[in-house]
Design a protein around this nucleic acid. Structure first.
Lengths: 224, 224
DNA sequence: CGCTAGCTTGATGGTACTCAACCGCAGTGG
DNA sequence: CCACTGCGGTTGAGTACCATCAAGCTAGCG
C-alpha cells in the first residue's frame, strides 16, 4: 500500500516569512503537545508547516467542541483578540512558525498590500467558519461526514484511488461535527458498504466514487 | 404599553465616518428591500445606523440559512472577498452608511491603528460566528432559543420588566437557529408557561426571570 | 497470549421534524 | 356591520434520526 497522501497547500507555505524577511520562530510540537491554551496572550499567529493542529474548547459538562483542524499552509490565530479564545494542540508531530503581531504590523506599514492580504485571510477564515455553521445547522449525519471527507480530499491533492490521510481519530471527528463517535462509525461503515469510500487503515481513506461523495455531501450550493 | 426598547450599541455608531472624515454614503432601505445579493461586487462595508439587516443564503432545496442579524452599530461586509457571499435585506425600515473599501485602505495608510481596529472587528465577527457554530452544534432547541433571546437582551440595554423588540418573525428565528417554525413556537410557549419570559406582542418580549433565562441558555462556559 | 485503546455493532428511547388542523388578527369588500 | 380571506403563529399526532447505554470486536504491543 502506498503511504497516504498528506494534506498540504504548499503554495502558502513560507508565505509570511518571506514578506517579513525573517527566518526565526520555528517550533516543533510532538503529538498531543499543547501549542497554546485559552487565555494565553495572543501575541502572534502560527503558520503550520507540517503536521496537523487541533483547535478546541472544553465545556463545563466535559464535552468538547473541535473548532478547527489546521493543515500545512494554514494560519492559526485569527479570531482571537488579546488572548487566545480556545486551546490548540497537535494530533501528529507538527512544525509551526510563529509570526509576532508587532512585526507583522510593522511590516504592514511598509507594505500596505500585506494588510489587505491579512484581511483577506481573516475573511477566508470567517467564510470557512460560516460554512461550518451551515454544515452543523442544516445537514444530517451522513451529509456532515461526507462534507468533512470531501473537504479533506479537496485540500489534499486528491487523485482517484489514492489513499488520503485521516490524521484525527473518530472521537475528534465526532466532536468537530457535533455527532457521537457511534454515529460517525456507523455512517462511515455505511459509506464503505456502498463502495463510496474505502478504509484501508483506521487513519486513512480512499474515495472510490467522488461523484457519490459529492452527492452525499450535497446542499452546498445556493440557488444563485 | 411602552414601546419596545430598540436594539442599539450607539457608542459604535458613526465610528468609521469620523475616522474617514466623510459624511457621504447614507442610504435608507425599506422593509424587505434588498441591500445586496450574493455575487454582487463587495466594494465596501455597510454600517447599520438604525433598523435591522438580515444576511442569508437560500439553498437549492429551497431552505434558507440566516447567517446574521445586524443591529445599529454593526458592520456588515467582513468575510466577503471580491464579491458578497450571501444575500442581505432589511426586516424593518433601516438606515445604513456605505464605507468604500478603497477609501478605507487609503485611510489605513495614514492611520495604521485604524487597520488594527478593522482587524479586531473582523476577529470579533469571527468569534461571534464560532460561538454560533457551537450554539448550533451542541445546544438543544430550548438552549438555542434561550441563547438567542439572551443575546438580544444583552445587545439591547436590558432592564427588568422592559419589553424588547423582536424584529424578526418566527420563521427567521427558525432559519437562524437551525430549527423549524413549529419547534420555535412550542419552545417559546413553554418558556412563557414557565414565566421565564412574556410575549406581549408577536414582535416583542419581556424577560421576567433573567437568571432562569441564563440558566436555560447554559453551556456557554468553558472549563477554564 | 493476554491486555488495552480505539473502533464497531446492537437495542432502546428522546428530541425535533413532518404533516396537518386550527386560531386570531388585519385587511378587504359586499 | 359582518363575512371572507390571507398570513403568521400555535397546537397536535405520528415518525425518523441520532444519542445513549451496552456489549463485542480488532490491531497493536508488552
Amino acid at each position: 500500500m502506498q503511504p497516504a497522501a498528506s494534506l498540504s497547500t504548499s503554495s502558502e507555505v513560507h508565505l509570511w516569512s518571506e514578506a517579513l524577511g525573517t527566518s526565526s520562530g520555528c517550533r516543533s510540537i510532538s503529538n498531543a503537545e499543547v501549542l497554546f491554551r485559552e487565555g494565553d496572550e495572543a501575541s502572534g499567529f502560527y503558520e503550520v508547516l507540517s503536521g496537523t493542529l487541533r483547535g478546541y474548547k472544553i465545556f463545563a459538562d466535559g464535552s468538547r467542541q473541535i473548532i478547527s483542524f489546521s493543515y500545512p499552509g494554514d494560519i492559526v490565530g485569527f479570531g482571537h483578540g488579546e488572548a487566545f479564545r480556545f486551546d490548540c494542540d497537535a494530533i501528529a508531530d507538527t512544525k509551526v512558525r510563529f509570526i509576532p503581531k508587532n512585526s507583522l504590523l510593522k511590516a504592514i506599514k511598509e507594505q500596505p498590500e500585506l494588510g489587505e492580504r491579512l484581511l483577506t485571510m481573516a475573511s477566508d477564515e470567517l467564510a470557512h467558519t460560516q460554512d461550518l455553521s451551515i454544515l452543523l445547522c442544516r445537514k444530517s449525519a451522513a451529509e456532515r461526514i461526507a462534507s468533512f471527507l470531501l473537504n479533506i480530499a479537496t485540500r489534499s491533492n486528491w487523485r482517484p484511488g489514492v489513499a488520503l490521510a485521516l490524521p484525527m481519530c473518530r472521537q475528534d471527528i465526532a466532536d468537530h461535527l457535533g455527532l457521537t463517535i457511534e454515529t460517525v462509525s456507523r455512517t462511515i461503515t455505511k459509506m464503505r458498504a456502498r463502495r463510496v469510500i474505502d478504509i484501508p487503515t483506521r487513519s486513512s481513506f480512499v474515495v472510490n466514487d467522488m461523484a457519490a461523495l459529492r452527492h452525499a455531501a450535497q446542499a452546498e450550493d445556493t440557488v444563485h
